[in-house]
Design a protein around this nucleic acid. Structure first.
Lengths: 338, 338
DNA sequence: ACTTATTATATAAGTGGTTATGTAAAATGC
DNA sequence: GCATTTTACATAACCACTTATATAATAAGT
């Protein structure tokens, strides 16, 4: 037996490695079914187990529901259900209130089969725990963490951070508001607000009609356009009267992370603030948004409690207020430290 | 977005979970290549990387070698090579000294492509490390441990331990030596000796011809036959003269672990020892063989240093000697504690 | 009310492998 | 030295899904 080249590639080959491991694992469980001559296809396992749970809770299950719960495609579940129906292990009936839906449920034969399999499932479960915890390991927990990390940010956007993207960044264009781009204002901001907080009513109104809520009130909106990804970022100045503005609704699509779009966008709008002769520019945010706050700090914003007192009530989620110090204004304003 | 039912199944769905994770991972790396418009199929990655290493070490690579090093099937590598040849990234030539072999190597174009990809590989590597270590995790190491655990014993044989197999165990038959079964004596013992130690010359001779080395010398050999798996275990008595025997070459195939074949076999041969009127039965082994020693202890063997002094020199690997206490013999022999 | 968009499903085609099998060359056994 | 076994590879068939697409039913927008 030769060596394993994937070891040399280390984390770089993580995907291939996981694939290989999952194939071995699934082959092994398939062996288990075969050894105990369960006339069952291992790929049906998750669906059977899910139907069993639904069955004992007297709930029903449709194909799309199953595909969401199991993380498989809808055609996959469509196929599995048909196969299980052919084996007379489940029955598929058309939903009464919505004739598009197919309601899946175990047949009596299916229920018996599930009961026969349960001791085997238990044994596999114990054997898997064995495998996961051997050599002082805790593989299962480690995998859960990886899943969490992966869903919080994919490998693609993480990769961007480690690549020199200067050339592409130079091609990111900042565009002023135009009605045709208004929908991007909504989708981009919804993505991150939904992700971190709950959309407040005031948000919804502004996002759905930025024209009347921001532009027509003397505010400004900009968009960041990436050469291949399209509009990926946005940001607004909300007119608070007396030549004061709130920097708000600044967001960059998840799919464009790692490209420093936020930085380019912020630097652009701060330059605009200067050339527009704005007197006061501030923002409200939440301590949760660490990386955003770091970006603001890096670009001349300082924490300021008087702002919090004056405007902080507008949003439930705000507990951080910041003031921009890069404007040429009266000398009572503090200047950023060099 | 609905919940994830795989969470409810916990370790039981480990295979499906790994599969899902590997698919996401590979899709993400595929996105990376696409974003940086590398005209390359992600599935070729491991082969390209391997060819690059071989190239810079001025070594060559054949298809079977590649499939071993990468843990993929030979047809897979056969296909990949053809595809890479069509892309003019590698060239395939017939080996001069063995015309069955195909020698793979990078073309100049292939070398250029690899160099173009290297910065991306580096970035992906760093991003993957990121992913693996986030939230105080160490996923990569945990996966390596799992691979080790899995290759030391598969899920199937681990599962057996947690299932009630009384019925099947009752069907395990113990058969005496017959020439037609002699090859099992070699394969079964070779498996575990190769795995734990190095085959000594004395082993080889005995294993290759048990008839003349054991049977014709007044010794005994038995085989354990499983109803579906066939001959899975063996064990011998080596005649040391003066009605004394060494229990030796006891082994059970890896693929039959967890079925308690060893226990059934040992109990059978100890019964035979009694009915044959044997005066002294001992064995030599190594402290590494913990589970075997535990089995011997459970069945009436005790540790005995005089045996070690008398016979221990025969094998380099022996550092544990045990004596069977279940024989009806003179009263100077110690009896097992109840 | 009438178009328009969305949702649930089925079907077809594609993908990235696998196992099974065939063929020729080389190695081994006697 | 010749038959037998093993090895290297190619090809075919299969597998467990996937994506893409079509169709019908329902919901939403005006």
């Amino acid at each position: 037996m030769q060596q394993d080249f994937l070891n040399e590639l280390a984390e770089l080959a993580l995907g291939s490695r996981l694939k290989r491991m999952s194939e071995r694992m699934l082959a092994s469980t398939s062996d288990v079914y075969q050894e105990f001559s369960m006339n069952i296809n291992p790929k049906w396992f998750t669906l059977m187990a899910l139907l069993d749970v639904k069955d004992s809770n007297k709930q029903v299950l449709t194909i799309v529901e199953a595909s969401n719960l199991l993380g498989l495609s809808q055609p996959a579940l469509s196929q599995f259900s048909k196969q299980l129906q052919n084996e007379k292990l489940i029955k598929i009936v058309i939903d009464q209130s919505d004739s598009r839906k197919r309601v899946l449920s175990l047949t009596p034969k299916g229920r018996v089969r599930v009961q026969e399999m349960k001791p085997i499932w238990d044994a596999v479960q114990q054997a898997a725990v064995d495998l996961c915890t051997e050599h002082n390991n805790d593989f299962y927990r480690s995998l859960l963490k990886l899943e969490k990390s992966f869903s919080s940010e994919s490998l693609l956007t993480r990769t961007r951070r480690y690549l020199d993207q200067t050339a592409i960044q130079a091609q990111v264009m900042i565009k002023p508001f135009e009605p045709a781009l208004a929908h991007h204002f909504e989708t981009i901001n919804k993505e991150w607000i939904d992700d971190m907080f709950v959309l407040e009513t005031i948000d919804k109104q502004v996002l759905e009609d930025p024209q009347s809520h921001i532009i027509n009130q003397g505010g400004k909106i900009w968009f960041a356009e990436h050469p291949t990804l399209g509009i990926v970022g946005t940001c607004a100045f909300w007119n608070k009267g007396d030549n004061s503005f709130e920097l708000t609704k600044m967001g960059v699509l998840k799919s464009a992370r790692g490209l420093k779009v936020g930085e380019i966008l912020l630097q652009h709008v701060l330059d605009e603030a200067k050339s527009l002769g704005i007197k006061k520019l501030f923002l409200l945010t939440n301590a949760k948004c660490e990386s955003a706050i770091h970006l603001y700090e890096k670009n001349g914003f300082i924490h300021d409690n008087t702002i919090m007192q004056d405007y902080g009530q507008n949003y439930a989620r705000c507990n951080v207020a910041m003031l921009y110090t890069g404007l040429i204004t009266d000398v009572t304003m503090p200047l950023p430290k060099q």
